[in-house]
Design a protein around this nucleic acid. Structure first.
Lengths: 246, 246
DNA sequence: TGGCCGACTGGAACACCGTTCCAGACCCGA
DNA sequence: TCGGGTCTGGAACGGTGTTCCAGTCGGCCA
């Protein structure tokens, strides 16, 4: 199922054709297209990524791009996978399991902070390629932490869903205040709005408004990860709970 | 900031004009427009909600709709707020705090299950109106659970981010398999895909594929909520940990 | 009662999007 | 040299959100 026309066709043709080198030095390729797409997304935001803008940057036409890429969804998936793959190989190797989970989560947080569009894409269509990477990265560390097999799926899903939730929120925030303006002013505006809410219906939110304005996103993210990790460790069998290793 | 032109104008005009009743029985209003939008979203999915389809269903033109609604974002926010408000008033009253949190979370899960587009909207632009409702609903129960004030923000955020993460994933799943096909076949296909991954690079994911195929989304969601709740309770001060009340 | 004016309507028009189509350029093996 | 597959670039298509505006309706004032 779900076969993208162009890449499928290309595969068949490659198999029956000749293995050739580059046609020209500046030949179009999926790699170059994805790189250009990431550059546009980072510099001008999600809304700026159109096939016309992409074609202009690559000095070609939109038709040429469609020869290498099935559609915009595949392009976004490839760009996202590119970023996630880098996170998973760079972060979380060698250290103690609990630290490794935190390192991977932080790596994703930082990547989404730099590329907010990744957050949006992850909470829109992550099943294509990025999800197995994330599950493997986090789940294998939980395994090393001593989580029993019956709990693997629920524990990993909980962490992944939390990370994806934060990812989506960061992307939404980045969309509301453009790439230029800073986050502090934006959060201040939201906090002000919260303080003006009806005191009878929103007593809790009003008391929280101050925290919202001056909190550190990164630290709060880590606090959530730690909350879930202690929840996971509380259910650990006795022999694994002490050392962290099985 | 963020003032929507039409509603702003309308307010000004109302203030200086006369308080009048309905012009006709079938007069257009924001309420009727939002209702029609929800009907379209539920029946035919997010992609089917266009101003043209909306105008056709309401037997009017798109311009008339823009008199009552600033733009599509405001329309989606209003529709989402409608659903979330119902969840927050219906669920989680009267019971013990921990149960109340679970009830509210489950209420949101079920609402998103019925209206997948709510999940998409929540992980796209929730700050407009829905977020305070969710924060108040969950946060006030944590307060009742005995969570100290310094931990309110982190604990509530953790739960909310988790819920929003699941919301986004459910919406993404619903988008991949149309309103017609069922979820079991869809998950089976993903699981098959996971089992075919490279054994060297994805050993954990491959062992998880079976679980993915036959798990219950709702139960898994609750398991994640419980994980976070035990994490939160583990940090509770001694006197609150026993009874659940302060 | 007649006219006025603002609230409201409905549909045409605009700019732009993702995608498709296609005529040609290019380069390889025969 | 030639033929055909690989690859290109730009025009064209259908559809979107949004704007624009001529016109309708109904309560108010002279």
């Amino acid at each position: 199922m779900l076969e993208h026309r162009s890449s499928h066709v290309k595969l068949v043709r490659m198999a029956s054709g000749t293995q050739r080198g580059e046609r020209r030095a500046d030949a179009l390729s999926k790699r170059r297209i994805v790189e250009a797409a990431i550059a546009i997304l980072d510099a001008e935001g999600e809304r700026a990524l159109t096939f016309r803008a992409l074609a202009a940057r690559l000095a070609t036409g939109s038709g040429a791009i469609y020869w290498h890429v099935a559609n915009k969804d595949e392009l976004l998936a490839a760009a996202t996978d590119d970023v996630i793959a880098r996170v998973m190989t760079d972060a979380g190797d060698g250290t103690e399991p609990r630290e490794a989970v935190r390192a991977i989560a932080l790596g994703m947080f930082d990547a989404i902070d730099v590329h907010p569009w990744v957050g949006a894409q992850l909470s829109r269509a992550p099943w294509l390629t990025a999800m197995p990477r994330i599950f493997e990265g986090i789940g294998s560390r939980l395994q090393a932490l001593g989580v029993p097999e019956e709990a693997w799926f629920d524990s990993t899903s909980a962490l992944v869903n939390y990370v994806l939730g934060v990812a989506g929120q960061n992307a939404a925030n980045a969309r509301l205040h453009g790439p230029g303006t800073d986050r502090a002013a934006f959060l201040g505006a939201i906090a002000e709005q919260w303080e003006r809410l009806d005191a009878a219906r929103y007593p809790f939110v009003r008391r929280l408004a101050g925290r919202l304005a001056d909190h550190d996103d990164r630290e709060q993210f880590l606090a959530g990860i730690d909350l879930i990790l202690t929840g996971i460790e509380a259910a650990l069998p006795d022999r694994a709970r002490q050392g962290g290793h099985v």
